[in-house]
Design a protein around this nucleic acid. Structure first.
Length: 558
DNA sequence: GCCGTTTTCGGCCCGACTGTTTTCAGTCG
């Protein structure tokens, strides 16, 4: 609305910057308001801090309501259509009185839109097309990371056969391992960019062409995902990959800093502004190095304080997949898993793990074939037997115990005491209020036999919102009782999420990355867990299952 | 509206693609 009003573009940009900072915050805004610390948020100054305070304390913002009153209704809705920005929205509203998408569709169909200045037939048809896509997309929204990753890797394979293509990499939010993905960005180099691009848009996977220029094309693939492909000269691959990987805020911070050094950054390289010369970079490492910065891993390029630390050579060494020595959450055909206990152990062993925990469901989850205590005793015998059979991997006994609505566990203490690893998780009564849920999780992590809190917020990406809970209070309790919090790497969960991981790690809470495997193939999910742990700035020492077997056992509470 | 080893005023990342005009505005990432 500020843009429509003709206010300085930098004013609306300031609000956007502040909004992004708040999204990345690991603390509650409410808390910062209460403690009068809003101005610590980058991009929040006097004015925005006042407005945030009003919004948080009253649930209402006078400034916003007043602003809204100055415009015809529906302008914001029009701007949700790709291709319609503030100028076009205002034009449509002022000239034709259009206030919603249906009216816009009608106006295009009867030719009123084409009659406007700078609006031709093609523009009108494009908007019509975008309206259809928008209506479809509204129900789909962003796609979970794993789905986009699988699609992207399939596509990379197909593209490796395209003639002329040399280097090719994923970029954008997918490369940064964000938990949900809007579209898939790729960067490549080619000896014949035009020809290669042409070949790419005709790949079997491509369903629809969005746009295509000499160096860039956008297509839609079969599952509805949009792919943006950019081709550059081989010499510029490093700067292009960096630029397209983002994030937006990271790039703005980087370029602002470069400006002070007399340098101008673009996807083509670095221009020395005094000399007017362009220097090209074929790798990201040299691109960062030229600016006096250490290499910054994609997962933490979010415009927090990564540039400052890269400048001081003080970035942490983030955890990597080979650091993981065991997986402590899996299900077998004793409950709802798909494979036998032995096959699951063999799969874990095949990945080079030194230890695993067998954690089938407890009796409370009848629906998931939860183990009766009698069956558990039988399983413990089998585990002893397999421990003798496979001396090169330690098999811990365990259970994923259900946290009842009142915070108690559905397995007696004397049984839990016999197990090596106890995970406690919420599976029911997910709609409890914040107070009650917080108390429930605190009871669980405070329990003397609970080693790990499983999938703490119970979210399912694109399906179910996280439970209402004061995570910081849960972190404090976990810290006090030496209970680890799980980073559940199942594609649909990724729970804890990145900002929670960041906060928990800073507080000193121990974390553990588990796949919650129900099938031997599921152990592959570990790399997703690693990705979001890296987004939370985790090093190997922040994650318990990087420890050696004996050290790991010793680190557990029980 | 924010922010400061150039600054409390005057800057604010930079370029591609489309469509409609004939040199560029609007939008997007």
């Amino acid at each position: 609305m500020l843009e429509l009003k003709g206010e300085s573009i930098f004013k609306s940009r300031a609000y956007q910057k502040a909004a992004r900072s708040i999204e990345l915050l690991s603390e509650d805004v409410d808390k910062l308001v209460a403690e009068d610390r809003l101005k610590e948020i980058p991009g929040v100054g006097e004015a925005i801090s006042k407005k945030l305070t009003e919004l948080v304390t009253t649930g209402h913002l006078e400034y916003y309501e007043k602003l809204k009153g100055e415009f015809p209704p529906g302008i914001n809705i029009l701007m949700e259509i790709p291709g319609i920005g503030p100028r076009t929205a205002l034009l449509l509203s002022k000239e034709l009185g259009i206030a919603d998408i249906d009216a816009l569709e009608k106006a295009i169909e009867d030719g009123r839109v084409t009659a406007l200045p700078r609006m031709g037939e093609k523009t009108a048809q494009n908007i019509l097309h975008q309206i259809k896509a928008y209506r479809k997309k509204k129900s789909e929204q962003r796609v979970p990371l794993a789905i986009a990753l699988t699609a992207a890797e399939g596509l990379l394979k197909e593209m490796s056969a395209v003639p002329g293509l040399r280097r090719l990499s994923l970029a954008g939010s997918l490369r940064r391992f964000r938990d949900t993905i809007g579209d898939i960005d790729m960067v490549g180099t080619s000896d014949h960019p035009q020809k290669s691009l042409e070949a790419c848009i005709h790949l079997p996977a491509v369903k629809e062409l969005q746009e295509k220029g000499p160096t860039k094309a956008s297509v839609i693939i079969a599952n509805g995902l949009q792919i943006d492909l950019r081709l550059v000269e081989n010499d510029s691959f490093g700067s292009a990959l960096q630029y397209i990987t983002g994030s937006k805020q990271h790039n703005i911070d980087l370029r602002t800093r470069a400006e002070r050094l007399g340098l101008s950054l673009s996807e083509y390289g670095i221009t020395d502004q005094a000399a007017g010369t362009l220097e090209k970079f074929s790798s990201e490492e040299t691109f960062y190095l030229r600016q006096g910065l250490d290499y910054i891993p994609p997962e933490i390029r979010e415009g927090q304080h990564e540039i400052e630390l890269a400048e001081q050579h003080a970035l942490p060494h983030l955890i990597e997949l080979p650091d993981i020595r065991g997986d402590l959450h899996m299900h077998t055909d004793w409950s709802d898993g798909a494979a036998s206990l032995e096959d699951m152990v063999i799969a874990a062993r095949g990945r080079g793990y030194r230890y695993v925990a067998v954690t089938d469901h407890s009796p409370g989850l009848g629906i998931a074939g939860g183990l009766t205590l009698d069956r558990l005793r039988q399983q413990l015998e089998l585990i002893s037997e397999l421990n003798r059979k496979f001396p090169d991997i330690r098999i811990f006994s365990g259970m994923e115990v259900d946290i009842r609505a009142n915070g108690t566990l559905d397995v007696p203490d004397e049984v839990l005491a016999k197990l090596d690893v106890v995970i406690a998780s919420v599976h029911s009564a997910l709609n409890q209020g914040r107070e009650q849920m917080t108390q429930r999780l605190i009871s669980a992590v405070s329990h003397p036999h609970v080693d790990i809190l499983g999938h703490p917020t119970c979210r399912l990406l694109g399906e179910r919102e996280p439970v209402e809970v004061d995570m910081e209070a849960v972190f404090r309790a976990a810290l006090a009782h030496h209970t680890a919090l799980e980073i559940n790497a199942m594609p649909s969960r990724l729970d804890l999420k990145d900002t929670h991981i960041y906060q928990a790690r800073q507080m000193g809470v121990k974390l553990i990355i588990n796949t919650d495997s129900h099938h031997p193939e599921h152990f592959n999910f570990m790399r997703l867990g690693i990705g979001i742990a890296r987004r939370g700035w985790c090093t190997a020492k922040d994650i318990l299952n990087t420890l050696q077997s004996n050290e790991f056992k010793a680190s557990l509470k029980s």
